[in-house]
Design a protein around this nucleic acid. Structure first.
Lengths: 191, 191, 191, 191
DNA sequence: TATGAATGAGATTTCATTCAT
DNA sequence: TATGAATGAAATCTCATTCAT
């Protein structure tokens, strides 16, 4: 017999898959339970409602993701190195956690205000970290003097390109990122 | 008495509002009809199904939006001017067409394959226009030599910042855009 | 412009076809009107309701059918000849008025009590005619002495065989009827 | 608490009654559920759709009926005895299973092609049994030499008389059957 | 008189949630 | 604790009928 924590985790993972594939409304507790290999009623022993389950899936997933991104930013190095590692980690997440991103993309409107606040808070954490790095870099004369918060937002927003960009023949995500980073650091204008 | 085209438009607008506020699944034909000031059955006189209505709302909205953005890119000017106008038009759309964006954000998963293809096509049009502008600018030695498609994707992706950025005290979207454009053209690195 | 009676007839015929193909519930006034080449509202100028239209279609059709069958019974001849003509006329009706029979088969339950009474009355007329013929034949010692009403019911019931019998290779309805008549007159027992 | 099989049976019986009284289209799952003493959703736990429920009701009922009729034909005896028992069993069914017949009469058009094939197959079984009996009887010189299949169809068709015949004062179904059988065996002609 | 746009009652079906076992 | 049978609210869609033109 599995212990409680393991079964809880099983349900969370099954929910992640189902919400990703079907979206919040179309995913059913029935299927989530079946995916998890438990009875329908059992899910309600661990989570009080479908919405609560959804929230936990999302909060946990996003938190992990943000934590991973934050971690690479906090490793020592230049701004260049940090941003580059950020994009590489982002690619890794894109490749390994498609479920989470699918949920994010399709269910933003289903997120209760309460959870939304928590999620924004998490995101702001990452933005804050990025901003701090830029502030220091500006002070250290390591980069151009732009409002660091806007720069941080711009770079973080750039992480999304990978989710919409259609690879051309011969391109790899790695090569795209390489060019993308060049743009971020050099800009469009010639020097 | 309104004529048929006007009533159709009325329903489309009511649907836009409802889909934006509730998402596809939660929005009900009942409410859309009430919003439009018509009976439930009447909506079915104009649109064969909820999905068909949804598709038309989306296709029409996105098409208009892309057309507007494309239009400003095609007015004469330097790359600088074009990209700047693009961001300003984007801000204008953001301020006037929040409903459409809300639908886009929350219902990607509900978009039928058929419509999805049409939408991607529209989006590719815009990307293509941007890419062509960059290609010419590179040939004219007006901008740095990066793969123009990637640059185009980067700039277009940048349009989304406005939808997530949280204004600080004293900031306006106009000032944010100003800094943002500076980043796009100059990059983070000092010269 | 057609006159009123012609348009009425047009609607009745369209209704006959539609009720036959779809059954009472599935047939729609919309389609009936379209089949008749008139507007939806127009049908209501001629018939107060869907049910009323259905009743008139049925009553008219059955009345015609019974009248045709009655007519052949009233032509002079022996019992043999009359019953034989009855079956032949029945075959003719089967071949030319499949719509009416389709309605009869599938919509008995939809027939309002009021119409049902009228229909039974019509049927009883035919039964009565047949019964009278048998009564006379018995008195004339032309046929065996059985309760003429039961004999009449048996023969009339026999008319239905044609609607369920599946022809074998080489058989024709004509040949089936020939054997069938032999049975009616001679019975199963050897003599 | 009833077990699953019993509840299933309860719903089937409620459906039988409702389909008989209202016809397929007018009968509602709501009412069927109420008749069965269960909730609306419960019916869908046992039958995937209204149509599936209808099919099962019909197939089960007809199968039972045909099996009962077949059984009496297979008991030993002369052709006379067999046909007589057939009519008596038919009367018994008529008296005890009016619901089923009502459905048959009023909903032929609602029967899905798939079920229709199964039903015809069942009916053909009975026709085949009857035909075989007649074939043997003819070979044994026990009855007149008519195509046995036609004779079988005629006799089986005769079973329906009971569903349309209106009893006169002083008549009973038993007496009607008695005369009817006489007709089948002796025919109308005098000897 | 002829029309068809407008309507809303009503049907089937889904599924989150409860609760007896 | 774990289960799944039972439930009914709610959503989409159909169509007879009305009525303004």
């Amino acid at each position: 017999m599995k212990n409680k924590e393991e079964k809880r985790e099983l349900i969370l993972q099954a929910a992640l898959r189902n919400f990703a594939e079907e979206g919040f409304d179309r995913a059913t507790m029935q299927n989530i339970a079946k995916s998890a290999g438990v009875g329908k009623g059992t899910t309600y022993e661990y989570f009080p409602s479908k919405e609560a389950l959804f929230c936990e899936v999302l909060l946990k997933g996003i938190s992990n993701m943000v934590d991973e991104l934050t971690a690479v930013l906090q490793q020592p190095g230049t701004v260049h190195e940090k941003v580059e590692r950020l994009f590489q980690k982002n690619l890794e997440i894109f490749r390994t956690k498609s479920d989470l991103r699918a949920i994010m993309l399709n269910n933003i409107g289903k997120i209760p205000a309460d959870l939304h606040r928590q999620l924004m808070e998490k995101q702001r954490e990452l933005l804050g970290t990025m901003e701090r790095i830029f502030t220091e870099a500006i002070q250290a004369d390591e980069m151009v003097d732009v409002p660091p918060r806007i720069a941080a937002a711009a770079v973080l927003n750039g992480l999304q390109v990978i989710y919409t960009y259609q690879l051309e023949k011969g391109e790899t995500y790695e090569s795209v990122i390489e060019h993308y980073l060049k743009l971020i650091f050099h800009g469009l204008d010639k020097r």
